[in-house]
């Protein structure tokens, strides 16, 4: 495990896109599933640090192991590259759901008013401090959408909890009222307004759809 599961603050963020990560796995597969990291990069005329973000995240998702500068598939990684585009996606999705980062985000969405979070909320929840915030937020949003953990209203810069199982432990949690086309933003919420600090939220679970 790259990340301990009870950590409260996720420390590892995706720094590349899902398609780039898949590209790395496909590349590794072209090397029979195990290759020197420098050679892998060289194969696409890249520098090592250009494949490193994808490699690091593939490791976190337990698809690849890196030992002594050599990357190899885990069993799951092997299974992923052998699958169809859809199967690959569903493996990535399952792995993503297990990360502290996305568990934290889903939990926050479950407790947030209307099951929605703004970009700024997100940045606070995952304690983005050192990373260039915008890009990090966009990467996280991109992965979360890819894994269908939440929807995203780009106009309003808001994450919206997706319908499936995730949302309703109690059984009372219905899909938020915004299905299909999302409105530009919740009425009355100024985009610039400061989100309440995360530690004060939790308590105020606003009833979902009537």
């Amino acid at each position: 495990m790259g990340e301990s599961s009870d950590a409260t603050v996720p420390t590892i963020f995706p720094k590349s896109s899902p398609t780039e990560l898949l590209g790395l796995l496909v590349l590794l597969n072209g090397h029979k599933g195990s290759e020197d990291v420098a050679r892998l990069a060289d194969d696409l005329d890249l520098e090592i640090d250009e494949i490193f973000p994808s490699l690091e995240y593939a490791e976190l998702l337990q698809l690849v192991k890196v030992t002594d500068g050599r990357a190899s598939f885990t069993e799951l990684g092997q299974k992923l590259v052998a699958g169809s585009i859809r199967e690959r996606k569903s493996i990535l999705r399952e792995q993503l759901r297990r990360t502290t980062l996305f568990k934290t985000i889903v939990r926050a969405l479950e407790s947030a008013p209307n099951h929605q979070l703004s970009d700024e909320d997100l940045a606070q929840i995952v304690s983005l401090t050192t990373a260039p915030a915008d890009e990090a937020v966009q990467n996280i949003v991109n992965w979360g959408r890819y894994a269908e953990l939440f929807r995203y209203d780009a106009e309003a810069h808001r994450l919206i909890l997706s319908k499936p199982a995730a949302s309703s432990r109690s059984g009372s949690g219905r899909t938020p009222p915004t299905t299909g086309a999302t409105p530009p933003g919740p009425p009355g919420s100024a985009r610039k307004s400061n989100p309440p600090p995360p530690e004060t939220r939790g308590a105020g679970v606003v009833p979902a759809a009537a």
Binding site: S16, S17, T19, E20, L21, L22, G23, L24, V26, L27, L44, D45, L46, E50, I51, S54
Partner: peptide, 8 residues
């Protein structure tokens, strides 16, 4: 980019 192209 190179990795994206490789995947597609």
């Amino acid at each position: 980019d190179a990795l994206t192209a490789e995947s597609l």
